[in-house]
């Protein structure tokens, strides 16, 4: 089994007059289909930087990032935007949804941005909402939904169409504990259906939903808890 997402020796250094800041140091990480990997660490440990690299929102200083086996480092902005519309889904902590769009329109947004007809995009959006149990709320606006429902719509959006990689940045950070657990249950459910989810969190209770837990400190991976899925190819096997 090949990884959906792979980071190879990724480093990120921010240069400032006060000196270089190493946000990530030689990080290796592979995420496989059906796997939920949690990234944990204290503030400033490089969790969000790692997510930025994985989603092509930022470029590493060195190393490589592969999505579906293809390197995304150095892709032109236009192709990077296309990658995010078609391959990579994001779930943010809050302010996830566009307030002027209904739940179905929000869920279908990446397809709409990619040029699919509004009717077909809506169909796919409603199907994605159904996968998170919200098809009945298709025509509701974000302001008419609870925080948990909004996050589920965001998960539906991140997986709409053919996408199977979700990058979730503290998706339960703005929710109460019960609602947060519900959202993680939906993410786990999507993983079990074949999606790969990289979850950034600082809450160990939420990390317990993961197959593996990667601990970051000062930009470096200090500990990995959990095993690779059966049949997973290692980085060396993939490159050979």
């Amino acid at each position: 089994m090949k990884p959906t997402l792979e980071l190879r020796h990724v480093s990120k250094t921010h240069t400032s007059p006060a000196g270089d800041v190493h946000a990530l140091r030689e990080v290796d990480l592979a995420l496989y289909p059906g796997e939920l990997v949690a990234v944990m660490g204290p503030s400033g440990s490089g969790k969000s930087t790692l997510l930025n690299m994985a989603g092509g929102l930022d470029a590493p200083t060195s190393g490589d990032v592969l999505v579906g086996g293809a390197s995304i480092v150095g892709l032109p902005q236009r192709e990077m935007a296309a990658l995010r519309r078609t391959r990579v889904g994001f779930v943010f902590q809050d302010l996830n949804l566009v307030p002027a769009l209904t739940a179905a329109e929000n869920a279908a947004l990446p397809l709409e941005l990619d040029g699919l007809s509004t009717r077909d995009a809506r169909k796919a959006g409603i199907a994605a909402l159904a996968s998170v149990g919200l098809e009945d709320l298709a025509d509701r606006y974000p302001e008419e939904m609870s925080g948990g429902q909004q996050q589920r719509v965001a998960i539906a959006r991140s997986l709409v169409g053919d996408r199977s990689l979700v990058l979730a940045d503290e998706p339960t950070g703005a929710l109460d504990s019960v609602t947060g657990e519900e959202v993680l249950m939906v993410l786990r459910d999507r993983c079990d259906a074949g999606a790969a989810v990289l979850l950034v969190t600082h809450d160990s209770r939420h990390a317990s939903w993961a197959d593996r837990i990667v601990n970051l400190r000062d930009g470096a991976v200090v500990d990995v808890v959990g095993d690779l899925p059966e049949g997973a190819e290692t980085s060396e096997q993939v490159t050979s």
């Binding site: 902005q77 935007a81 995010r84 994001f90 943010f92 947004l109 990446p110 941005l113 959006r157």
Partner: peptide, 16 residues
Amino acid sequence: TKDLAVLKAIGARTSY
């Protein structure tokens, strides 16, 4: 601004 950031993050081009 925050909506636009989300839109760009999920793949909207500036020209669009």
